[in-house]
Design a binder for these strands. Structure first.
Lengths: 220, 220
DNA sequence: TAGATTGTTAATCGATTAACAATC
DNA sequence: TAGATTGTTAATCGATTAACAATC
């Protein structure tokens, strides 16, 4: 919700983590203050859009000066609720699952993967980062027990809906889905799609292969 | 470009691979024909939008009947240029890089990872799926030699821009970037972002933690 | 024929950008 | 003060949805 009580558009929320990326980088480089113009350059975004996005949540800048980097980081972290710890579970201990588990930078964002599940007997009992891989049948029980809020799905496409149903039944309100399928879920559960094949295939559209223009006509 | 010669919006192109996902599933289940209404249900999209999206490229349906599943698959594959082989290189042989290399379903989409690069001496020379990991210094040479069109970046954030510059110098026209940074690139190079932390952090915005409504006021 | 569903135009809705008064 | 930059309103642009004639 914005300060005027209007709901915030998805486009705005999607941009906030990217703002945070750039601001964190400025912070590391000890930059104190940044203008919307400078941010726009770094983000490849219109400065007016950045000002408007931020203004939904409050007045974070100083006219004639710009935005205080650290203050803005704290504000955006607050908006995204990254100042509160959040529990995450992962289903699918394959290559991708491993990659996500080992990704450490969640920590500063208060995100913690506290459970990993898999269906394959070969994987159950193995450890990923001190975390024992549990059988998928225990998912609902464990998610309820731990109060897990977000489920990450890295199982094969054919099992994704089943796993999603388990997560939803156990009460998660957010799902990050890496499987190349559209999931069915009640409105109260938010689903973000992170399947990279979709990204890769749409990239293909913009390539002009070997330089041949497919609209070019042969002339003789 | 649409049949009227107008450029196609990014939103439309992003949806096409998802259409393909659902259509492939229908094909596997031997469904011959599907209506925009049925597709809309499966995709969680407005049927009018699906009809409009497809109509940019031609008249693929039959009034009163719907769309022939196989025919539509072929058409969309053609639009996305998946009927022509496309060469892909990957930089960053970490966990995520491994996961992407092992992902086999590119094959049917004519996508082939033909080179893998890494900066770490410990990884150079190792093999991933019969593919030898090459030193990052050889990137430009190899990409030119093989005529690689797309670069996938799975290196740490700090090195992502450098790797992108190498890819661009070597002539790729598409980059799929998994590093959590905004890349600078000339307009002719298309960049798609696949960083999942962004997706995860924006998901946090929609969670209401432990059920407490942050707008609720204490009353005594 | 009657029913269904497309392709397309018009209407609506939403998001981005420009412009500028307020003010640091 | 003069210069810079915000926050916000108005203008523009683009994308989604509704409606319906055409037609299988």
């Amino acid at each position: 919700m914005s300060k005027q009580g209007k709901p915030i558009s998805e486009a705005v929320v999607r941009r906030l983590p990217v703002y945070l990326q750039v601001l964190n980088d400025l912070h590391v480089r000890d930059v104190q203050t940044v203008s919307s113009q400078e941010l726009g350059r770094k983000l490849d975004l219109n400065p007016a859009q950045i000002r408007k996005d931020l203004a939904y949540f409050g007045e974070f800048g100083r006219k004639g000066v710009g935005y205080d980097v650290n203050y803005l980081i704290e504000k955006i972290r607050g908006i995204l609720k990254l100042d509160q710890p959040m529990k995450v579970a992962l289903a699918g201990a394959g290559n991708l699952g491993h990659a996500l588990c080992n990704y450490s930078s969640y920590v500063k964002d208060n995100m913690k993967i506290t459970a990993v599940f898999d269906a394959s007997p070969a994987k159950i009992g193995k450890r990923i980062n001190r975390l024992e891989v549990l059988p998928i049948e225990l998912l609902q029980e464990k998610v309820r027990e731990d109060g897990i809020q977000i489920g990450i799905i890295t199982v094969p496409a054919a099992e994704a809906q089943n796993v999603a149903d388990r997560f939803i039944e156990a009460g998660v309100t957010g799902i990050l889905n890496f499987a190349p399928v559209v999931l069915k879920a009640p409105d109260k559960v938010r689903i973000h799609y992170a399947d990279f094949t979709t990204q890769l295939l749409s990239l293909a559209y913009y390539m002009d292969k070997d330089g041949t223009d497919e609209h070019e006509q042969m002339v003789d």
